Simulated scan of single mutants.
Amino acid sequence: MTNQNKACSKSYIAGVSFSIHPMSDQFIEIIKGALKEVDTSKVHMKTDDVTTTVRGKLVHVFDVTKAIFLHAAKTGEHVAFQATYSLGCPGDSQGEAFMAEDETLLNSSLVKDIKQSVASKFSLYPLGGGDYMDVIYAQIEAMKKHVSVSPTHYSTRLDGEAVAIFDGLENVFQATVEGGSSHTVMTVSISANSPSHKGDMKNG
């Protein structure tokens, strides 16, 4: 364990394991169509029979997953997204990651104007110490300027535009890392176009 900590203590590799579920008979076409529209050249991405894993710089991991979700959701079909984001060690390695030299986003400008109302819940787990609680509360407070924030059992609920929610989640995650957590994990559930959404906003 000591050697592993030394090997990854300075690693900035971020990763996410996610599943996206279009509630439609055309789910294969929706998923493949979303993937086709997203530039994944700055991350390592691998799909198996359970989930898709994306690894690389944090900004690119969020850029890719946000774009995949938005391109799937803009079809108007009910889409559910489940993800676990992680950065740090123990529990990570250098394998199967592509650390792009720059932080220029490849998908952000193409999805920033997609209007998509969503409901989301997230839970944040700083597993590596650090003075992080004040940081988390400050970031959640900042989210309230852009989305609706409410407490729920075991998580925090966010309602609003998908772009704003993804950006807020990335900011919370990054701030927690910078607050001193050597291993940060965040679980996220997002739903778009659900028949149960009240006042659901149509794509613009």
Rank of each mutant, 00 (worst) to 15 (best):
A67S: 11
A83R: 14
G130C: 00
D48F: 08
E77I: 04
D25W: 05
S109M: 04
I20P: 00
I28T: 05
D25F: 07
H60V: 10
I68V: 15
D48P: 12
I28A: 10
I136L: 11
E29H: 08
V54W: 00
E103N: 07
G130P: 00
T52E: 05
A138I: 05
T51D: 12
G15S: 10
S19N: 09
E77W: 00
A72F: 11
F81S: 08
E101I: 06
V79N: 02
L106V: 12
E77L: 13
A97L: 04
A72S: 09
A97Y: 01
T104D: 06
D134A: 04
K74R: 01
A97M: 03
L70K: 01
K115D: 10
L124M: 13
D48R: 09
V59D: 12
F27N: 01
F18L: 14
F81K: 04
V61P: 11
I28C: 01
D49V: 15
V43Q: 13
V50L: 15
L105V: 03
L127F: 05
V16R: 04
T65S: 08
M45H: 00
F122H: 05
V79Y: 02
H44P: 00
T75L: 11
A83Y: 09
P22D: 14
A142M: 07
E29M: 01
E29V: 00
K112E: 12
V38I: 15
M143W: 02
V111P: 03
V54L: 05
S120V: 08
D25L: 08
T75W: 11
